[in-house]
Write a protein that binds this DNA or RNA. Sequence first.
DNA 1: CCTACCGATCGGTAGG
DNA 2: CCTACCGATCGGTAGG
Lengths: 217, 217
Amino acid sequence: MHTAADVAAPAKRPRGRPRKTVDERDDGNRRRAVLRHAARLFRRNGFDATSTRDIASAAGMQSGSPFYHFKSKQALLFAVMEEGMRSALQRQRDAMLDAGMESLEPTARLRLLVRNHFESLLGAGNDYIPVMLYEQRSITRSQRTALAELQGAYEGDWEPVLRALHAAGQLRADVKLARLMIFGALNWSVQWFDRRGEATLDDLTDAALALFLAETP
Amino acid sequence: MHTAADVAAPAKRPRGRPRKTVDERDDGNRRRAVLRHAARLFRRNGFDATSTRDIASAAGMQSGSPFYHFKSKQALLFAVMEEGMRSALQRQRDAMLDAGMESLEPTARLRLLVRNHFESLLGAGNDYIPVMLYEQRSITRSQRTALAELQGAYEGDWEPVLRALHAAGQLRADVKLARLMIFGALNWSVQWFDRRGEATLDDLTDAALALFLAETP
DNA sequence: CCTACCGATCGGTAGG
DNA sequence: CCTACCGATCGGTAGG
């Protein structure tokens, strides 16, 4: 009935049936609501500790209803991750275009990428990327492969910047290991950053740049 | 029957009863076996995805037997984390003593701490610390507080080293944020490091030092 | 999307 | 530590 391809299918039209009123409910909005609440709960409590009933209830549905939109709990998790990667990649590309990336110095380019990454990671309502980073164990190998493609594109945008910094003597470590450790330093902030605390995302960005680079302009 | 204090109790003598033979089984070794297999399974599959039956079976016991040694699955998780922190702290203190920490230059001191941390994180059979880092959501607030004390001691050993490096201009970022990001860079290696790969823990240490410090001697 | 439900799994316990 | 078991929860589905 459902094939594996369904997992990655972008949407599914509800079969026509009279809606209760005419305001919110209906069409793809319900699916988005499930996705959004799932992301929030998965992030807060973890995938295994979140029941599909919790998600249904948060979205104002009955317990079986999430399965109308997603064929399984795991497919829902994957959809959260994929949505996270797609929008993070979109955000990154937009930021690069807005700033005229090529015209910037390597240091400014890294700053842009780091600041943008913190936004995807820690910005209000951005629960998708943390879920995708910390719940890798709960998806299948083939789902991981599908995500790896998006991640490759995301990290690919960083590669020339890191190489330019390395060539300029600003980044002294091996580029590949440096990339892994830089993402570690940034991604780990999910564990300790408190939006109500004193430090802002700009502060984190300053600290990261100062930590990684030999000199800052 | 069991009080909250039991959770942190270091051991528990089995009440005397004739042993089957005289070789392995008996006393605290069974408890250690449960702990060790729990750590391995928690690390590989996550806390929620590991059943107490899985652990019992790995340790060669019947399904209810882990509860003879630990009052609950959560108490077992906490015991894994506490054991991890205690032995990591012990290992760090030993390494500092062996090397005559005070006689070293700040850079060499950081190298020692980083190399040692990678060992606790990625060394063969060292499953306890990864579990403690990645399963924080599954313990209670009061258990987290108890662990925070040990973590404070562990990180406290790094503090003077980072401050000395900052004072010497070798570490340019704010010390507190630098510490958080450095631990992030190191701890994230649990996600990607492959012991069968090319890079050694010494390679990782070199890369980390080159990444964080403005110059290397 | 709701109603009503099933089968399986799981943490935990009494009692020896 | 083993045996035998309980109560609760959970993912998922048929049928409308």
